[in-house]
Design a binder for these strands. Structure first.
Lengths: 201, 201
DNA sequence: GCATTTCTTGAGCATGTGCTCAACGCATGA
DNA sequence: TCATGCGTTGAGCACATGCTCAAGAAATGC
């Protein structure tokens, strides 16, 4: 079947990207994994397009794996914070870093990835908005708050994964927890007050 | 002179990296720019090492260009905030994103870049500490605060430069200004209170 | 069964790129 | 003047990689 083969190539590319990263995947690897001839890849795709489509599919797969559902907004936020710097999420963020880097010079990649970026942002914004509606926290501008939280998280994840500068996972998680607590007007847990608080005991 | 040629090759590589990014530079480009034969590059360097050394030199050059001195800590902070998302700084941050990405899979690059990362962090931490000593602001943990500010900035810069998700420069600058003000216990300027404040009028 | 169309193949092509190595120039010193 | 050794050169090598295209396989229509 023509559609099966096309989808098989795309999925094989996505799988290999999840395993080895975008830069390491070659056309021959993809056709070998998909069990088709080399020529078929070029019949259905140009390599640049396929790579971008497969990277987006790989990103969505990682997102689905890392971001499961929880019943309530506060539980969803807890899960987000708990997994933010877990090693389970490393593949997702490694891929994210690579894709955003490529997107700077590859329009196909940029187009394919923008859906993921908007999706993550909207998802977090929705959680924040629902929590605010339920008076679980205070959040007058959910989308802006989600943007800030994701930016902070992105920056810290980059530090943790690249070691530039070197930051421990636990330390990064602590920073993010405090940031989110401050952002949502939640009481801060924990003892050490390295973060400046408006209401210090 | 033997040392001159070696330095010329390194500088040529750094210049080309500043102009075109790390990924776009080839050995032949470097030797052509340096005005030497192809063989000499391989006599003095392995390509991976040269690329890492040149990338670090390019980074330092961009840092020197973008981060000038100011007389007092508060002026230094102003300059940092004013230039944080200026287009003048784009080459620096494009390069930074590319280098940190490469550093994930290239030990040479990681080693060459860690000095830059620590340097930037220490520089901001020093500014924060000096300002705190002069009672310009409150900052009990300068290094941690600098890390948070840089992480937030890094994340926002990534968003601005990649468009994933799409963020305007002015909006990013606004977020960073408010974050720094909050971090240092400074009064927030501006009218719209999109950032939650402990003391809302 | 046969003709026609569509799908599929992979050896080979074109290009790009890091690196080799035999050869060369040139300063130095005897 | 000539020998020596260091710095230097660049044609060519070895390899990687996206893509072509003539040919074959399989489905489809009659």
């Amino acid at each position: 079947m023509t559609i099966d083969r096309r989808a098989a190539i795309l999925s094989a590319a996505a799988d290999l990207i999840r395993e080895n990263g975008v830069a390491a995947v070659r056309t021959r690897d993809v056709t070998a994994r998909a069990g088709v001839g080399i020529g078929l890849l070029n019949h259905y795709f140009k390599w640049g397009e396929l790579r971008a489509l497969a990277a987006a599919q790989a990103l969505w797969a990682e997102i689905d794996r890392v971001v499961p559902d929880a019943p309530t907004p506060d539980r969803q936020l807890d899960v987000f914070l708990a997994r933010a710097f877990g090693e389970d999420a490393d593949p997702l963020w490694r891929l994210w870093i690579e894709v955003t880097d490529l997107a700077m010079s590859d329009p196909d990649m940029a187009r394919a990835a923008e859906g993921c970026a908007e999706g993550i942002l909207n998802e977090l914004a929705a959680i924040l908005e629902q929590g605010a509606a339920k008076r679980l926290w205070h959040c007058p501008a959910p989308r802006a708050a989600a943007l800030r939280i994701l930016a902070f998280h992105d920056g810290l994840v980059g530090f943790v994964l690249t070691g530039l500068p070197r930051v421990e996972r636990a330390e990064a998680a602590e920073h993010l927890n405090r940031f989110v607590a401050l952002e949502l007007g939640l009481p801060q847990q924990g003892c050490e007050a390295s973060w400046p608080s408006a209401s210090a005991p």
